[in-house]
């Protein structure tokens, strides 16, 4: 330790401020993500209370059989992926559109207020959104149906209509998330060098041309990074949203059941910790593979923006 210490230790000493800065984040990640990861073993065990997570007997891959035997593996995987791709596409499109519109709009106060109003739904709990949806679409007393009845039309039976739910879910997801993303894109638009726009104005570019040739290319890094981060969660349904908004409705499970809701429901119904951990592990495994693939693809196209 006296003269030629290890390069890592030297680095630690030289850049101690930086190391100190990443310390809280590292501690949180280790405590919340890596240590609990040891619980994965549960997927290969027949859990009993006495043995606990580590003392219960091993059963190999038996827990996985249940997930695939139930025929639910395919439906839930399909739903999870399709919904997330739809959310990702719709939300990103709306977020960029709104950001550009807001940036083009004049009126400082109008802009501020619109921005805040759009951001607000992000803070509303899904429980509240779920109650909101129920009160709108409830067959007997829902707002939509009361209105339809009052104008003499036939009420809609939304809760047993499978086709309605993908639309509802995509709309509420946009309702909640568009404002948040808009602010991120807006920030990156504001950062674009104003001289470029001035130069374009001098050259007589139209608004469309400016958007197409300046704004969009300039925010591409932000889009790619946000996209990459979202890919990592494509296998992870927004549990709260699916659980609360659909009310765990068996009529439409076929189109609304995602891996997360399935795991939770089986956990509540069966109390089989092993089987549900197995389904969870399957989900994490797929997620991991997806991130690797997406990252690889990005690396090919835009080597600078890849995560690793």
């Amino acid at each position: 330790m006296k003269k030629r210490s290890h390069p890592f230790l030297r680095d630690l000493k030289e850049n101690r401020t930086k190391w100190l800065m990443i310390l809280p984040a590292a501690v949180v990640v280790i405590l919340m993500c890596y240590i609990p990861m040891a619980g994965i073993v549960l997927a290969f065990k027949e859990f009993n209370y006495h043995g606990g997570i580590f003392g219960s007997p091993w059963v190999g891959f038996k827990n996985f059989e249940y997930f695939f035997q139930s025929g639910k593996a395919w439906t839930t995987t399909r739903n999870t992926i399709l919904y997330n791709i739809a959310f990702l596409g719709v939300n990103t499109f709306l977020q960029i559109t709104c950001a550009i519109l807001l940036s083009e709009l004049g009126g400082k106060y109008f802009k501020r207020i619109t921005q805040s109003v759009m951001f607000l739904p992000y803070f509303i709990s899904w429980v509240v959104v779920g109650a909101f949806i129920y009160n709108m679409f409830n067959y007997e007393f829902g707002a939509v149906n009361s209105f339809l009845r009052s104008v003499g039309m036939k009420p809609l039976d939304v809760y047993s209509n499978k086709a309605a739910w993908p639309v509802i879910l995509i709309v509420v997801s946009a309702f909640k998330n568009v404002g948040y993303g808009t602010v991120m894109y807006l920030a990156s638009i504001v950062n674009i060098d104003g001289e470029m726009f001035e130069a374009a104005d001098l050259d007589g570019a139209t608004m469309w041309q400016k958007i197409k040739y300046i704004t969009l290319p300039c925010i591409r890094p932000t889009v790619v990074i946000l996209f990459l981060m979202a890919i990592g969660t494509v296998m992870k349904g927004d549990f709260q949203m699916f659980w609360q908004v659909t009310g765990n409705n068996p009529m439409v499970l076929e189109v609304t059941d995602v891996i997360d809701t399935y795991v939770t429901r089986s956990m509540l119904n069966l109390q089989e910790f092993g089987m549900t951990s197995a389904a969870g592990l399957y989900q994490s495994g797929l997620s991991f593979v997806l991130v690797l693939i997406a990252n690889h693809a990005v690396k090919k196209v835009e080597p600078d923006y890849a995560l690793f």
Binding site: K62, E65, Y66, Q69, S70, G71, K72, R265, S266, N269, L270, E272, M275
Partner: peptide, 8 residues
Amino acid sequence: NEIATITE
């Protein structure tokens, strides 16, 4: 495993 599926 069967019971689990049937419960669903």
